[in-house]
Design a protein around this nucleic acid. Structure first.
Lengths: 226, 226, 226, 226
DNA sequence: GATGAATGAGGATTCATTCAT
DNA sequence: TATGAATGAATCCTCATTCAT
């Protein structure tokens, strides 16, 4: 009797059991989905095209995913896990003491590297083209990353109110996502320059905030109520 | 006076003189399109839904626009014109000498105001959800705005190489678009705070650049090859 | 008070009156229709495209023709008249005594010439692409021409039963139409050869028939019940 | 035995193995298409009407055919094959030595018989109603039949230049198609008479040509450059 | 007369999803 | 499991025709 639900999040609403072959199929399908999402965007991607790209029939796809959204969600999960396994987990503990500019390199460079290798990550983080509309497809990825930013930022700004940290983190993450898209879309020989520029934007934004909280610093824009 | 237009086949770009009713319909349709684009995004918006929203039949829509793309293009043109007529034209000449923080207010506040009143503007500027893919729909709006940023920036950084100015402008505009989306999506009582934050990001990014070119200043990150 | 209905066939179901301007419009429209029919075929031709080609609005077209079919019918009438005025009427009386091969030249050459100048003639004669379906659009042209063939043939075969003459005429006309299409579609430098060939087909077909009825002749296929 | 087809994206022309049901559907759809093409002609036939006639949904049709053209092409292929299997293949080898009139019977009678049983054949051979426009839909059928005519004719006219044989074959085939349409459209009690007549046309046309190449014969129209 | 606006059913085609095998 | 078949509503777009101006 094989283990019924070995995968992650075996919640009550996911009765689909995966065994060896199944896991391979899922990987196949998620790979295909990543490719299709990158090529055509989430909205325009069709389940049939994903199945075709994966070399399986539509029916097979639906044996593993209840609908298109679930594919995006699971792809997001997988990419997040892959990110954490590859760079993320290794990243954090050590770097918390770094000076800001070093931190920036330590955070941004792997992120960009990872996104170059997994362009679907950016697609899913970005969400659909409806601004301000949070969809379940992208939410997990998005909020998980955002939470990480908040965590790190919280460590650097221990005395700042939660709400404000959240806002700053949101802004940081938003700017990063936009810059990332710019970098990924740039001509290859421009990418490094854009990367440098993105780091500058982010660094200059948070540097004063962090200095505010430490030794005497020149507050170029005194913080008050937002 | 018989036959005002006697010549046959007067070329494909015949002025196609529209009657008053037609002008009204076009406005109606563009309004409807703006609403639908905001509600569902450009990709998911269907011509039929736009026609329905406008209260006309699909055929009527196609009497004025050859396809969905044309609607977006014309809506973009209209919004751009409206922007220039409302704020844009008034904006520029005066403010070129302003200190940066005042410039920021002078530029960002009207833009956000305008986007609040015309949320389709942001949708069209943002483009589709396929990253790095330029579509004719959004290009006019996008490049027009970008060009303005480049212009203004060029005035403030006269000694910087063109390529670098372009890059900085691109980054500025990208960050602005992202921040704008954040502001528009934010809870109403958070919007001002996010606006302040966005200005901070932008200001801190360009302040050192501008100071570099003027009086002695503390260059926190000396510029070299990008 | 201008003459109300000067045109031909002022039947009771055609109350549309035409005056000077109107006649010009009709000519314009029929010219345009001829061009469009030739370019796309009758079925695919749209009234809107005809109006566009004529440089008028759809409404104007419908002021002169109740529907698409009527355009084809009237175009057929016009072409038939033009044919008769140009070649047809002049043709007949003189040639009735000609030997067959001369008759053939006298009939076929002008017909081909006329069709080269008025390619819509062939389109309308040919009818739609539904074989064996007679449509009002093409019927007038078709049966008028066919009747002429029958007439001429009747003169050459006075002793042959009506039904047989009709059949032979039908076959002759059918072959002619097909050969005509072949000639019109042929490469320019092939047209004369195809024309010669078509005449050969027709001539060899009727020569024995005619000889049967006259002087002694070798009946290569004795006629009996059809 | 797990996963019989492990390779992903096995090329666009993957055999696309069809299940029994699918084969039946294809046959059903081609049958329906044949009926609709005969009833309304190719141009006016709609994929929806074909699907309706076949008793399936539009989506089902598109699972087997990418578009209307493909239906016509496949139907043409099928009819051609059916023709060759039924009459064509049996026909040829034996009859090459036959006297012309017997050959005519041997060729024309089965053709007419087959077309009576498969009237779509004629529709597809005939092509659209745009004269001189070759469409992929009809080309296969048309050129295949034409090639056969050329072959046979070449055997009877071995000394005639290729270009001339081609022209004669083209004319023969054209006349046959036209006569066939006439026969199919004729009243049932007229059909045999029309068939006889068609054979007469064709026979009289080629008889002199063939005799030219053999024993002394009366050349009623000496051949020279076309 | 002339125009352009308006219609709405119908065209081809796609797609997320379910089902029989 | 895996497959391909099946669905039918929805997609974009066209067209013959009518109507208000």
């Amino acid at each position: 009797m094989p283990e019924p639900t070995p995968g992650p999040t075996p919640g009550p609403d996911r009765p689909r059991r995966r065994q060896a072959r199944g896991e391979r199929r899922v990987a196949q399908l998620l790979d295909a989905a990543a490719r299709v999402f990158c090529a055509t965007g989430y909205t325009a991607a069709s389940t049939n095209s994903i199945a075709r790209e994966a070399g399986v029939s539509p029916g097979t796809l639906y044996q593993f995913f209840p609908n298109k959204e679930a594919i995006a969600v699971e792809l997001g999960d997988q990419l997040l896990t892959r990110w954490q396994d590859t760079y993320g987990r290794a990243l954090m503990p050590d770097h918390l003491g770094l000076p800001l500019d070093r931190l920036m390199d330590a955070v941004i460079d792997p992120l960009i590297q990872f996104n170059r290798e997994n362009p679907a990550f950016a697609v899913l983080m970005h969400g659909s083209d409806v601004p301000g509309q949070v969809t379940r497809e992208h939410d997990a990825l998005h909020s998980s990353m955002l939470a990480r930013v908040e965590d790190i930022l919280g460590d650097y700004l221990p005395d700042t109110p939660k709400a404000e940290t959240a806002r700053i983190a949101h802004m940081l993450f938003t700017v990063f996502k936009a810059g990332l898209a710019l970098i990924l879309a740039a001509e290859p020989d421009e990418r490094d320059a854009y990367t440098t520029e993105l780091k500058r934007v982010l660094l200059r934004y948070i540097q004063p905030l962090v200095e505010d909280c430490g030794p005497p610093c020149r507050a170029d824009a005194p913080r008050s109520a937002g």
